[in-house]
């Protein structure tokens, strides 16, 4: 009796795993398909660039405050922690290098992408999900207007444009935060702070690679948010779940992609 119950439990568990994997793969494929359709219908949306500009406003400009404030604090914390450790080795003027490299190479793109997923990504998912639930997308289809070209593609490109800009601003403001902490507060020499930074931060290998990362994150985060919204069941519960999934999936995707990109960039 117990044995058979165990067996049934095991089979049920395996079935659950199988179901989840199939669903996951199916969703991944559907996401790629949406990505492809979006790219295919991007021509029209570039001809009507004001659609993209409008979405850049909603994803980029509206995320500016949260990005800048977080960047400032992240920069100051980096400065504080860096100083605390570096002064043990008598090299506290290297604080500028530490703050700049950490921000430009990793924290700028990654933290921006995570914040973006939370701020703009969820907004996109909820908006698209609600448009679907209230039949706005259907209505568009019936008006012979492709929702992918009119709704999805502009938001996609807006995200891809906004993300690197936000990441660059994040790095810049973070470095300013580090500077404000290191130079006036702690008393590190301003000249040493900047010169060490300039000697060790490489334009192409550090700054440009960071920008490339944030472009990739922009593609991933925006596409995930759009797909979750487009794929959401047209109910209040479905949309709220999709919004949660956007944050979870985007965060995992950003961190995973970051590892892959970093390992490629350090090798080359």
């Amino acid at each position: 009796m117990i044995k058979s119950a165990l067996l049934i439990g095991l089979v049920r568990g395996l079935r659950g795993i199988g179901h989840k994997s199939i669903k996951g793969i199916w969703r991944f494929g559907a996401g790629i398909r949406l990505f492809w359709l979006t790219l295919m219908s991007s021509g029209e949306c570039f001809r009507r660039f004001h659609l993209i500009i409008r979405e850049v406003y909603f994803t980029g400009v509206m995320s500016l405050i949260i990005i800048l404030v977080s960047a400032f604090f992240v920069g100051m914390v980096l400065g504080l922690q860096g100083y605390h450790t570096l002064q043990k080795y008598g090299s506290s003027e290297a604080i500028g290098v530490l703050v700049a490299l950490a921000l430009v190479r990793e924290l700028g793109p990654v933290v921006t992408a995570l914040l973006f997923a939370g701020r703009a990504g969820t907004a996109i998912t909820a908006e698209i999900g609600l448009m679907k639930a209230t039949e706005q997308l259907s209505a568009m289809e019936m008006m012979a207007v492709s929702p992918i070209a009119r709704v999805i593609a502009p938001r996609f490109w807006a995200g891809v444009i906004a993300m690197p800009i936000l990441a660059i601003l994040f790095s810049m403001v973070g470095i300013l935060g580090g500077y404000l902490l290191a130079v006036p507060v702690i008393g590190v020499d301003a000249g040493a702070f900047w010169s060490q930074m300039q000697a060790n931060v490489d334009w192409r290998h550090d700054i440009l690679n960071g920008v490339i990362k944030s472009v990739v994150f922009g593609v991933a985060c925006t596409m995930i948010a759009l797909f979750e919204g487009y794929d959401a069941p047209p109910t209040a519960e479905g949309v709220s779940r999709a919004t949660t999934r956007t944050v979870v999936t985007s965060s995992l995707a950003v961190l995973g992609l970051d590892f892959i990109l970093t390992s490629f960039m350090l090798n080359v």
């Binding site: 810049m172 470095i175 000697a199 931060v201 700054i207």
Partner: peptide
Amino acid sequence: LLGLAMKVGN
């Protein structure tokens, strides 16, 4: 970006 390139980068 220009600031990063000029002031921070090399």
